[in-house]
Design a binder for these strands. Structure first.
Lengths: 224, 224
DNA sequence: TGAGTACGTTACCTTTTGGTAACCTTCTGT
DNA sequence: ACAGAAGGTTACCAAAAGGTAACGTACTCA
């Protein structure tokens, strides 16, 4: 699970990030409001933890901005002051939860998990040529024909879809699918081969294009 | 908006009810856990506020009971003790929020409103193919045939219904059903096997679909 | 107290997978 | 044109995932 932590006290942030990591919650980190807005614009977080007091843009402003953009990611505010007015302001702005510092890391974790559990959205379906994919349902078909992918194949496809029609380079793929350590170079070759066999059969247009020396792209390519 | 307040201190309860009324939140009131369970069975509340310390059945027990029945109404715990262990226990049981006494009525109001807002109104009944389920009454049948599920089976079914027709990840299921500690991996297998035996018998369409490497989905799947 | 149920565990078997090596084929720089 | 590199294809095997059955313990309820 990936969340965003926006908090200007570095020590506290570091401590928090370490603790959350041990609970399998990965953190992106912003040390001020502007950075937070930026990260949020470019990433998908399951929960956003916002310190109220931050340089550049305070937590309230960040929250307001998100809500104005129609962003519905759950937000937890952190505040140094145990100030009722602040809390109410936070809730009025659409906060989903509120913690006063000092807080227990375990409690933060519990609250993050509660919020994450109820959220849903992700890019769910994708169409390209005669290929259609629904990641939520884990359904995929090419020209009406239902296909069945293995877990790793889904991962790879997901990556390709996310970047389509751009090229995803081999390193990126390897890091994503085998985060622990490098597989033999043959592995990717084989994985790709197997996925290709499933997607690009018979008379179908080729969708999985190798870019020699770089990586792979998922797209329709009329002239080649 | 109608909520349930379960709290054994009459004075506090009265005060709270009055205040909430001024905010257009109507309260049903239970002075002990057993009464709370009773009221919940016969009414529909948008939020349930549970005191942890109550005669008959304490707040935790009430919560557990609800979750076992597949009830998903948001729950806020109240506790006299500002005790982290209690909080964590509450969250583990599926609490959505937690307030320590003494609390500000305005804060309680704010939190109630937050929870009510995002409530997704789990439909009380669900139909799919020849399967029909009524969560409120805990009734389930397939092709007119009445089935009887255990509480864990209800929990699982509830989860599956909530996500249907999407795939529910094995991890999600395990976290939901055995929040405390990881069961042996065989447990889910067996649970699923048993539920499947109940739901997908004889000539009925398969509704419980395993997605290898990922999880399970409850849906009709015509072409596979 | 005793039958019945729920549920955790273990064991066994089948199917699917993920990794590897070996061997082609195509491309590229010199 | 040729050597090497990059990529494609295949076959093989061990491990993982899943389905099924059976067993024992604990709990429930009369």
């Amino acid at each position: 699970m990936l969340i965003l932590l926006a908090e200007d006290e570095r020590d506290l942030a570091e401590l928090t990030i370490d603790y959350l990591a041990s609970e399998n919650i990965e953190c992106d980190y912003a040390s001020d409001g502007a950075m937070a807005v930026n990260l949020i614009a470019n990433n998908h977080y399951e929960v956003i933890v916002l310190d109220v007091n931050m340089p550049k843009l305070d937590g309230f402003k960040v929250c307001q901005k998100l809500k104005n953009q129609g962003n519905t990611t759950p937000i937890i505010f952190l505040t140094a002051r145990d100030n009722l007015q602040d809390k109410l302001k936070g809730f009025a702005l659409g906060a989903d939860d509120y913690l006063s510092k000092p807080f227990d890391l375990e409690e933060l974790t519990a609250r993050i998990k509660v919020l994450a559990k109820r959220k849903v959205n992700m890019p769910t379906s994708f169409q390209l040529d005669t290929l259609s994919v629904d990641f939520k349902q884990c359904l995929i078909s090419r020209s009406q024909r239902r296909l069945s992918l293995s877990k790793t194949q889904w991962q790879l496809l997901n990556l390709l879809v996310k970047h389509s029609p751009n090229v995803v380079d081999k390193i990126t793929i390897e890091d994503e699918i085998w985060p622990d350590q490098q597989p033999s170079k043959a592995m990717l070759k084989t994985l790709l081969f197997r996925l290709r066999k499933l997607l690009d059969f018979d008379g179908e247009t080729t969708l999985l294009h190798t870019v020699r020396g770089t990586g792979v792209a998922l797209r329709v390519d009329n002239n080649e």
